[in-house]
Each structure stands twice: as structure tokens, then as C-alpha cells.
């Protein structure tokens, strides 16, 4: 009996949390952003986007290089090392770019967002905004949300581009794949709508999920040091799981059925 009560209470609590998350997002986005809030968004793009740039570029470069190395050793057995370009480009654009960016973003920017908003709550900054007749949803949540939505697809595109250049570095400059076939086979295989645009759509969905989870976990955290640390951990865990799960669904929708 106790077990069922427990499960029931947990489930109701989770559903209520989803409801609160929805209301929070609605409250933040229901109104048109004011002009002076644009600068706040620009500053948040700096915090979540620009400051994640280094980790994204370095990861993209190395992942591209590793894929070229791995792909070359497999493809060369079939004499198909010319297909290295399409292999690297397609894996990056369709999967690794959006997914790895989202995972890194959750760890780098998502956790910081949660901790920042949680601490703002703990130090009564959110309450004090409210008492100053400034809506914290519009002032604090909305700029961070938009910054995440703008930054993540941009980071994913940069990640893929750097990865492809990294693949070129190893495949062409080091292992001696023909540069012409690296680019031209890539060009004849990669399709703008199917591969590039779908990758960007994926990364927009991930941006929504990761930013939403991160902001909500901070906003809904228990304002103690323990509560904030728990919220930060949950942000990384939940958003990583959500990204991987959604990636499967989106891949099935985009590429699975022809």
C-alpha cells in the first residue's frame, strides 16, 4: 500500500513540475520582448554562447580528426577512402554536431544557468525583482532562454564545420586522401535540406529542451546549497537523457522512413 502511495505521489509531483515548467516558459515568452531586454539577451549569448565556443571548437576539431582516422582505416580496406569526406560530413551534420554540442552545452552552459538562477533565488534576488515590480520571468528567464535558443544551433553549425576541417586535416593532409575527392564526393552526397537543415532543426529542438530544463531546474530549485547542487546535477542528467532520447525520435522521423 505504501509503495503505491509513494509511486502515486511521485507521479503527481512530476506532472505538477511539468505543469510549473510549462507555466514558467509561457510566462517568460508570452509577452513580446522589450527593446531594452535585447541587450540582456546579447549579454546572455556572450555567457552561454561565446564562453562555450572554446570547448565546442576543440571538441569538434578532435572528433573530426578521430573520425577521419577511424574511417580511413576501415574504408581503405575496400579501396573506398575517397568516401571519407561524405562519411565525416554526414556523421557530423546529422548526428554528432547537434548531439555532442547539446551534451557539451548542457554540461558547460546548462549547469551554469541552473546554478546562477538557483543562487539568485537563494539570495532573494528574484523576490527582490518581483517586489520592484519587475517580472523575473521576463527579466531573468526570457533573455537566458532566447540566448540558449540562438547559441546552440550556432554552436552546432560551428562544431560540424570545424569537425569537417579537422577531418580534412587528418584525412587529406596527413593520410593522403585526395583533396578533390574529399570535397567533391562530400558535395555530391550532402544535401542542404536533408542533412544541413535537419541538423539545425535537431539542434533547435535540443536547445529548447536543454535550456528549458536548465532554467526551470534553477527556478524551481530549493534555495539551499544542497538544493542548488542537486538541481545542477539534475540539469545535466535530465537534459543529456532527453537529448539522446529525442535524438532517436528525430532521427527516425527525419531519416528513418524514406
Amino acid at each position: 500500500m505504501n509503495l503505491f502511495q509513494h509511486i502515486g505521489r511521485e507521479t503527481i509531483g512530476k506532472v505538477a513540475a511539468i505543469g510549473r515548467a510549462g507555466l514558467m516558459l509561457f510566462g517568460a515568452l508570452a509577452s513580446l520582448p522589450k527593446l531594452k531586454n535585447v541587450y540582456l539577451t546579447v549579454r546572455q549569448i556572450y555567457v552561454v554562447g561565446v564562453q562555450s565556443l572554446l570547448i565546442i571548437v576543440v571538441s569538434g576539431l578532435f572528433i573530426g580528426m578521430v573520425m577521419a582516422l577511424q574511417g580511413y582505416t576501415i574504408l581503405v580496406d575496400y579501396g573506398a577512402e575517397g568516401s571519407l569526406g561524405p562519411m565525416v560530413a554526414l556523421s557530423l551534420l546529422r548526428e554528432l554536431g547537434p548531439v555532442v554540442t547539446a551534451l557539451l552545452f548542457a554540461g558547460r552552459a546548462g549547469s551554469a544557468l541552473t546554478a546562477e538562477i538557483g543562487l539568485m533565488k537563494a539570495t532573494e534576488q528574484l523576490s527582490s525583482l518581483e517586489m520592484m515590480a519587475v517580472d523575473p520571468l521576463r527579466r531573468v528567464v526570457a533573455p537566458r532562454f532566447w540566448a540558449g535558443m540562438i547559441s546552440m544551433p550556432a554552436l552546432a553549425v560551428i562544431f560540424s564545420a570545424v569537425g569537417i576541417l579537422g577531418g580534412h586535416l587528418v584525412g587529406v593532409d596527413w593520410l593522403g586522401v585526395d583533396a578533390g575527392s574529399y570535397w567533391s564526393l562530400m558535395q555530391s552526397t550532402v544535401e542542404w535540406e536533408k542533412d544541413v537543415i535537419n541538423g539545425v532543426i535537431k539542434s533547435l529542438v535540443f536547445a529548447l529542451v536543454v535550456t528549458w530544463i536548465a532554467i526551470f531546474k534553477g527556478y524551481d530549485s530549493i534555495p539551499t546549497s544542497e538544493g542548488i547542487s542537486k538541481a545542477t546535477t539534475e540539469t545535466v542528467v535530465f537534459s543529456s537523457l532527453a537529448v539522446l532520447g529525442l535524438d532517436f525520435v528525430l532521427t527516425a522521423l527525419m531519416f528513418g522512413i524514406e
Partner: peptide, 22 residues
């Protein structure tokens, strides 16, 4: 820095558009 970020993004999109997807 946000400007640099935007320029980099546009550069990456151009690379993907012209060089990769042709």
C-alpha cells in the same frame, strides 16, 4: 565577442553551404 561569435557562425554556415553541400 558576440560579434565574433556571429561572424564565426555565418562563416560556418557558408562553409557548409558552399563547400560541403555545394
Amino acid at each position: 565577442m558576440v560579434g565574433v561569435f556571429i561572424v564565426l557562425t555565418i562563416g560556418a554556415i557558408l562553409l557548409l553551404a558552399l563547400k560541403v553541400a555545394n
